[in-house]
């Protein structure tokens, strides 16, 4: 039934490649949180250095998409998948930039006294990683329902972020010497919040290519 085997192969390879990039980004995010917990500056530096690899990966995916568009004249769902893949590659690449942002902050905090425990921040990072994981799974399996659940969980992240902000504010008011530390932690929380927004974007692209409808769930 498949008259276009080369084309099918190219599309399948693109999807695999995008998922591989997704794994690289997941790894960068997880390692940035480990670097934060362990105050591991070496690890943070290696995350910063490896961001280049992810950037290159994005360009490879873009080039592959352009190639398929130029040579295979995709239409309908195939075209939507390609457009979604282009956008998702950009979203993933920016998530990696935020992981790099966390890693940079870790290198700065190394000079500061150790942090107070921040359970909210860990709840945030757990939820954010779950969102990305589910967003990629939704892409792999074209699971619209799962993608919608990811979009819905962005509210939870926004809530945790707000809560964490208030906690940090109270530290700062209580003890002005904590201002630098608390600000660094807020930067990290902000990076996580942005990653959640981008994971939501990924899920929106999945809904778009599966249904042809665009919806904006980020407010």
């Amino acid at each position: 039934m498949h008259a276009r085997e080369t084309y099918e192969r190219e599309l399948a390879r693109l999807r695999e490649d995008l998922l591989a990039m997704g794994s690289e980004v997941q790894r960068a995010i997880s390692r940035s949180i480990i670097a934060l917990d362990d105050r591991d500056v070496e690890l943070a530096r290696s995350i910063i250095a490896e961001d280049e690899v992810i950037n290159d990966h994005r360009f490879r995916i873009e080039t592959a998409c352009h190639g398929i568009m130029a040579t295979q004249q995709p239409t309908a769902r195939d075209l939507r998948v390609l457009i979604a893949a282009l956008m998702i590659a950009v979203d993933l690449e920016r998530m990696a930039d935020h992981a790099k942002g966390i890693a940079k902050t870790v290198t700065l905090t190394a000079r500061e006294p150790s942090f107070p425990p921040a359970p909210d921040l860990h709840r945030m990072s757990d939820s954010v990683r779950r969102m990305l994981d589910q967003g990629l799974q939704a892409f792999a399996e074209t699971d619209v329902e799962l993608a919608q659940r990811v979009c819905a969980s962005d509210d939870e992240i926004d809530h945790l972020y707000k809560q964490f902000f208030n906690v940090m504010l109270s530290y700062m008011l209580e003890d002005p010497r904590s201002i630098t530390r608390a600000t660094y932690l807020l930067w990290i929380a902000h990076n996580l919040e942005r990653i959640a927004d981008l994971a939501t974007n990924v899920s929106e692209r999945v809904i778009y290519y599966a249904t042809g409808h665009m919806q904006d769930t980020n407010f």
Partner: peptide
């Protein structure tokens, strides 16, 4: 050509017919 309603249209225009 972007979002056909019928699966058979989709298959035809994407070359899977």
């Amino acid at each position: 050509f972007t979002n056909p309603r019928d699966k058979r249209t989709e298959d035809y225009i994407t070359g899977r017919y």
